[in-house]
Amino acid sequence: MTNNADTWTVAGRTFTSRLIVGTGKYKDFAENAAALEASGAEIVTVAVRRVNVSDPSQPVLQDHIDPKKVTYLPNTAGCFTADEAIRTLRLAREAGGWNLVKLEVLGEAKTLYPDMRETLMATEVLAKEGFHPMVYCVDDPIAAKQLEDAGAVAIMPLGAPIGSGLGIQNRVTIRLIVEGATVPVLVDAGVGTASDAAVAMELGCDGVLMNTAIAEAKDPVRMAKAMKLAVQAGREAYLSGRMAKRRYADPSSPLAGLI
């Protein structure tokens, strides 16, 4: 298998890059665009917010990141109820014409943990309205199955709280979700550095979504490149089929012929 053939598909759209990056927290649009370029990502998450009616001449995201070249994945960040999230995505669909969206319904500001009851309700409504929701969720294999049954086109469990950079806290549940899902699974949130992204991919995830790990690095463009390489390395390692673990040493040099 060549790298070029190793693609993944969500809701009928096929992508080569397995890294999805956010567009928040950057110093400016230029740095954001440079980091995106270095990451090789083909999908970016974007938020939906009120325009500044008092100063409509402010620069806008689309002038720096072209939605014709990169797939915009509108999110519902900041929504704490299914109703708010659905309303936001209806507006997003009108603004951009995209059915592929990222649903997140938050439970509380302190942890930004998802409210799974509201998330499930919103998933059902959105799927009925023709949306293709990629859904941020807890790392719970049962919740993941319920979301898939409700119409989620991708399952996106958190590795750790949003913006925490703590890395993947529960590899077992992430792996259980991967094994149980028939739609793509992407770790969304919690990645802090390249090894975290590699771990997600080694667990068999289809991709990784991150924002803060790149945007808050001292050199975001360089970290974007590191994440690209980590995702590729983790994917290659997963496809390679890692060696079995042993409790004790096993010498790599032959024992025969010792002087």
Binding site: G22, T23, G24, K25, Y26, F29, N32, T45, V46, A47, V48, R49, R50, V51, V53, V60, L61, Q62, P67, Y72, P74, N75, A77, L91, A92, A95, G96, I162, G163, M210, N211, T212, A215
Partner: peptide, 10 residues
């Protein structure tokens, strides 16, 4: 009226 657009976000 609510008038919205896309902004940076994660």
């Amino acid at each position: 009226f609510e008038i919205v657009h896309f902004v940076g976000g994660g």
